[in-house]
């Protein structure tokens, strides 16, 4: 996984709540068998509208998405995270993320930052008024900074450490493989097996 320490970039204010993963990347894109090449599918339906915020020339090259609450609801598709990253986003800020999307994002080094809705509103106002305004997402200090805004955010120490170091979860787990083997020895015989009967 790509490590995340701190990132500064321009923002895209997305004034919508309940942005589901079907909007982030529509199902027909899910037929691909790779982790890349999803950038053109990102918000595909909404991007057909030339006034959609992502299409505005002043938003080109922006890397921080500031969205309404309940971002990433619905389908578990990790392709939603890949599409955001393929497009160039490094961080997403919202007052509430869907659980599965949040888990997927942190596994891929896309930092999802939870801030109070009022802070999201201030970031929207700032970046709408000044598209060149930069937003810093600092995982080391657990802080989001922009002109006139300094907002602390929470992320548990373990998740933060894995992101800062860009660690591979599977290797971490396999370091404790003996625990898995011990557990397996104690599993009851009545547990299901998929071996064909």
């Amino acid at each position: 996984m790509e490590a995340f320490t701190t990132h500064t970039g321009r923002a895209v204010p997305l004034r919508r709540s309940n942005v589901d993963t079907d909007q982030i990347i529509p199902a027909h894109w899910l037929k691909k068998v790779t982790r890349n090449g999803f950038e053109d599918g990102l918000f595909e339906a909404w991007r057909k509208d030339e006034k959609f915020v992502l299409n505005l020339p002043e938003r080109a090259g922006a890397t921080v998405l500031v969205a309404g609450f309940d971002f990433g609801t619905g389908s578990s598709r990790e392709h939603a995270v890949w599409a955001l990253q393929n497009y160039g986003f490094k961080a997403v800020i919202s007052s509430r993320f869907a659980d599965i999307f949040r888990g997927n994002s942190l596994k891929n080094g896309l930092l999802t930052v939870v801030l109070p809705q009022e802070t999201v509103e201030r970031l929207w106002k700032l970046t709408e008024a000044d598209p060149t305004a930069e937003v810093t997402v600092d995982l080391v200090a657990r802080e989001v900074r922009a002109e006139g805004i300094t907002a602390a955010f929470e992320l548990d120490d373990n998740a933060r450490w894995r992101l800062l170091e860009g660690l591979d979860d599977i290797s971490l787990t396999l370091a404790n493989e003996a625990d898995i083997t011990t557990y397996e020895r104690s599993r009851p015989a009545h547990k299901p097996s998929t071996v064909q009967v």
């Binding site: 578990s76 598709r77 990790e78 997927n104 599977i170 971490l172 787990t173 898995i180």
Partner: peptide
Amino acid sequence: AFGIGTSQVEHVLATQTLPLA
């Protein structure tokens, strides 16, 4: 029973476990 992303699918395939809060 719960849904997981592809990185977690790989994790379960490799280890039959998941680290979860």
